[in-house]
Each structure stands twice: as structure tokens, then as C-alpha cells.
Amino acid sequence: MGGALIGLSAVILMAANGRIAGISGLISRILPSSTSRIEVPQNFMFIVGLVLAAPVWFLVSGHFPAQFVSSNFPTMAIAGLLVGFGAVVGNGCTSGHGVCGISRLSGRSFIATLTFMGTGFLTVFIMRHMVGG
């Protein structure tokens, strides 16, 4: 159900604007003085949409979605840096490569998805089963 909504969103963005729903690409193109600043207001609208989703959920259901987020400063700061840096260097994240890229049968996206899944598995394995946490 959630997956289908994500897919529907990607199809709408492609049908309307001819753009790939790659979140990291949309965000990074908004950053000031980026070399690839294109369609900034539009990218911004998508981000506004993302930010509105949880409040809309709150209005409909009366509660925010349940989540548990680590509040360990170094962990979350390093995680954020790595995710942001890696998404730009690797030309995409879970949405751009994992959903849109694989749907287009892009070889690059298959490789990227297998790679970040692999290092993701490995990181959680080390954190939970070797370091213990």
C-alpha cells in the first residue's frame, strides 16, 4: 500500500514534469550555488509536499506516525553526513536508484542499490552484533 503510493508519486512526477522522483537529486539541486540548479521552485514544491505528509497524516488519524529515532548526536550527525555525501557522489538514493532506476532497468541503479543495501546490512550487522547496541 505504502509502496504503491510511492510508485504513484513517481509516475505522476514523470507524467507531469518528465522528472525522476529522486529525493536526493531534488534536494541537492535546491542548495544555493549548486552547479546544477534547475527548476528550483518545482523541486522545492516536492520537498514542501514531503514535509506536509506527516501533518496531513496527523489531521486524518489524530496522531503522528510512530517512530523511534536515535538521539545520539555523533551517530546521527555522522549518519546524515554520510547519507548526504554518498547520495550526491553516487548520483542517487533509495528513491532515485532503488525505485525509479530499477523500474527503468538501469544497470547503474542495480549496482548502486545492491551496493548501498550491502553496506547497510553490513553496518547494522556490525552495530548490533559485533559492537552491540
Binding site: 536526493s24 549518519a79 554520510l82 547519507v83 554518498g86 547520495a87 553516487g90 533509495t94 548501498f116 550491502g118
Partner: peptide, 27 residues
């Protein structure tokens, strides 16, 4: 491509967030 994705995956595992969900979770 590979180095970026590998780095991304480490951060994803550490924090449990990728870009879309992190922005969505802001509010």
C-alpha cells in the same frame, strides 16, 4: 557510483534514515 552508494549505505544503516524519510519526519 559505487563509492557514493557504499558511503550512503553506511549512513543509512547507522541512522536508519535516507533523504526522503528524513525530510518527511521533520515535522
Amino acid at each position: 557510483l559505487v563509492a557514493g552508494a557504499a558511503t550512503f549505505g553506511i549512513g543509512w544503516g547507522l541512522g536508519g534514515f535516507c533523504p526522503g524519510p528524513a525530510i518527511t519526519a521533520l515535522p
